[in-house]
Nucleic acid binder design. Structure first.
Length: 629
DNA sequence: ACGCGAAGGACCC
DNA sequence: AGCCAGGGTCCTTCGCTT
């Protein structure tokens, strides 16, 4: 039953749910008493419904591992063949390796906690976390010493650290700060990609190019206390009524390097930054700190995947640059634990660990096997990671795909109560949808019972909905179906959520009318980065036309898919207004969502770049598929 | 063989 | 006292229609 060939599998303590154990993967948790912390976590959780559910899921993963290990008995020939395949692809990927970009990942340090500490000096020397008794969003570094961290329920955190101060989240405030730092990001890459309020990817390549010819004056940044600003700063600093405190950032950690230490009298103090990427990034972080009194960490690397890992390396308040050479990349990736890679979570880590894989070099060594055990997308991703590859350009920000709202509460079994809650959720959601002028055809109801089992029930309509009543009509139906399903037993809920997706690009959403080629050519940025966009376009296109069969194929498909969807969305745009007076919802509405549009712009094939005269989407799709083959 | 909708999960912050 | 969030994206699998 347990074939732990290399002692990698069960951590002997049966009943120990590894899913629940402390996750000391992240920064700020070096050298703390893991065993003691895990013991407390376990004791506090034991016997709870949550714990039971985690146990169940853990066992499911274990079964998955069993099945995988069964399959591992693969013939040598198969493995050889797979190995050859892998090697071919490695060669191909190697050829496409792009080390010319300077991708930066910026990440604010303990963001929410840092903001709260900044605004409440009493908190600075106390272990604190942001969130509630039931869930913490993040903790400061003092609290992390106790094992208190994000995604940990507050009541457990209190056991670990009785003096922990828990501050409720204040999203509006974080959003405001986020806007401030994003203004700075724009100066370095107007096409930057926000990941969350406190995190973003930037492409510094062009900024650094320009920077080479900049005079010192443009690279001079003043400390906060001064009221005048340097050239590029354009008076942004002025409007922030400085509290005048000479000591700026909150004390996040005892040994804070305090980057502002080199000039004691913050009067007219300034700093001149160099022209390298590192200097540029340092400057950006400096500006963030001056502007917000909060620190950020950053990673610099040839692609997004690596940049993300790098930003964690010298956190907090630090940065790390991975040189753009194949050697440096391979060395960096060699001992990198797979878990550090974004996208590899607890489950993947465990699955891989069962195969004796914990570092990225292991990943490379066992690639042939992985290609036989995992789905194509999965092992392709693994392969990329093992080679230190990732996206060398930052994708244009895409439209949102769904919008939802959900709420957790204490057990709720009464039908009327559930209905009124459902209605409330629909109202909230409708409100949010309205803010972005969105209408979607799919409504999804999410339910979590008191045993933490989650269910989703969805229905797709032939027309888009947006108002509370429209959504509620569907949602309450889904709820009723589910209730009937459980027949005599009531639904004992602890969470309910409503989601709307399958958006039909709502009319007045201005430009999006562009043809596909327009979309391609414009890339993500506007005029400013036109040459880059063009270059990017060419790159992508050559990648597409190289009729290589393996890895890039996946890209092509995904890409073509997106483009087809884009076209679909564009062609639907015209008749979006028709959804204003929908037929009454009666259970399964089954009309065909045909859209007999008039006068959509001629579609242009993204592959051959030839305009397709017929405006029939089906024909267009077939054409694109043809082009791909 | 495809495309799509539904349901369930993994993951991220 | 107190028993684990909420907002997303993407992937996989399955059943059905084309």
């Amino acid at each position: 039953l347990f074939r732990m060939e290399n002692g990698s599998l069960p951590p002997k303590t049966e009943g120990f749910v590894s899913r629940m154990a402390l996750n000391d993967n992240k920064a700020g948790m070096e050298g703390l008493d893991r065993d003691k912390i895990n013991k407390i976590i376990m004791e506090t959780s034991k016997g709870s419904k949550f714990y039971e559910n985690e146990l169940k899921r853990e066992q499911q993963v274990n079964q998955r591992i069993e099945m995988m290990l069964q399959k591992e008995q693969i013939t040598e020939q198969q493995l050889k063949k797979a190995q050859a395949q892998v090697e071919r692809m490695v060669a191909e990927l190697e050829e496409s390796r792009d080390l010319t970009r300077a991708i930066v990942h910026v990440d604010m340090d303990a963001f929410y906690a840092a903001v709260e500490m900044r605004d409440c000096p009493e908190l600075k020397d106390k272990p604190m976390a942001v969130g509630s008794m039931s869930m913490l969003s993040t903790s400061n570094y003092l609290a992390r010493k106790y094992g208190v961290r994000a995604a940990m329920p507050g009541f457990i955190a209190k056991k670990l650290c009785p003096h922990l101060v828990i501050v409720p989240t204040n999203f509006d405030k974080y959003r405001a700060v986020s806007n401030e730092i994003r203004e700075i990001f724009t100066d370095y890459d107007p096409g930057f990609m926000p990941v969350s309020l406190d995190e973003a990817y930037l492409d510094f390549t062009e900024h650094v190019e320009k920077r080479q010819s900049w005079p010192e004056s443009l690279r001079t940044r003043r400390y906060r206390a001064s009221t005048t600003t340097t050239g590029e700063e354009s008076g942004k600093l002025a409007q922030e009524a400085a509290p005048g405190t000479p000591d700026l950032s909150p004390v996040l950690f005892e040994d804070s390097p305090s980057s502002s230490s080199n000039s004691e009298d913050a009067g007219d103090a300034f700093e001149i930054f160099g022209t390298s990427v590192e200097e540029a990034v340092r400057e950006m972080r400096f500006r963030i700190e001056q502007k917000t009194m909060l620190t950020a960490s950053a990673g610099i690397a040839p692609n997004m995947m690596l940049a993300k890992v790098c930003s964690d390396k010298n956190k907090p308040n630090g940065q790390y640059r991975l040189p753009p050479t194949r050697e440096a990349v391979m060395e960096f990736v060699c001992d990198l634990p797979v878990r550090k890679v974004s996208g590899v979570g607890k489950v993947s880590e465990k699955l891989l660990s069962a195969l004796g894989i914990s570092s990225c070099s292991h990943l490379g060594q066992k690639m042939a096997l992985l290609s036989l055990l995992f789905s194509e997308t999965s092992w392709h991703h693994f392969l990329q990671v093992s080679l230190g590859l990732g996206s060398a350009f930052i994708p244009r920000h895409e439209e949102r795909k769904s919008m939802s709202t959900e709420r957790t509460f204490k057990e709720m079994s009464a039908v009327e109560e559930q209905l009124s809650l459902c209605h409330e959720l629909c109202e909230d959601l409708a409100n949010d949808l309205k803010k972005e002028g969105l209408k979607g055809k799919t409504v999804t109801l999410k339910l979590k019972n008191v045993n933490f089992e989650v269910k989703t029930r969805a229905l797709t309509l032939p027309y888009p909905v947006a108002t509370a009543d429209e959504i509620f009509t569907v949602a309450k139906d889904l709820l009723k179906t589910e209730r009937d399903n459980e027949s005599p037993q009531p639904l004992r809920l602890r969470l309910m959520g409503v989601r709307v997706s399958a958006f039909v690009s709502s009319d007045h959403k201005k430009p999006l009318q562009r043809s596909i080629v327009g979309f391609l050519n414009s890339g993500r940025g506007e005029s400013g980065s036109s040459q880059r966009a063009k270059q990017q376009h060419l790159k992508e296109n050559s990648q597409l036309s190289s009729s290589s069969q393996i890895w890039p194929l996946g890209c092509q498909r995904a890409r073509a898919k997106r483009l087809q969807l884009q076209a679909a969305a564009a062609s639907t745009t015209q008749q979006a207004g028709l959804g204003t007076s929908p037929p009454p919802v009666s259970g399964k509405t089954d009309a065909s969502g045909r859209c007999p549009d008039g006068g959509s712009p001629a579609l242009v094939c993204p592959i051959c770049l030839l305009s397709q005269d017929d405006d029939d989407l089906g024909m267009f799709n077939r054409h694109v598929d043809l082009c791909l083959n």
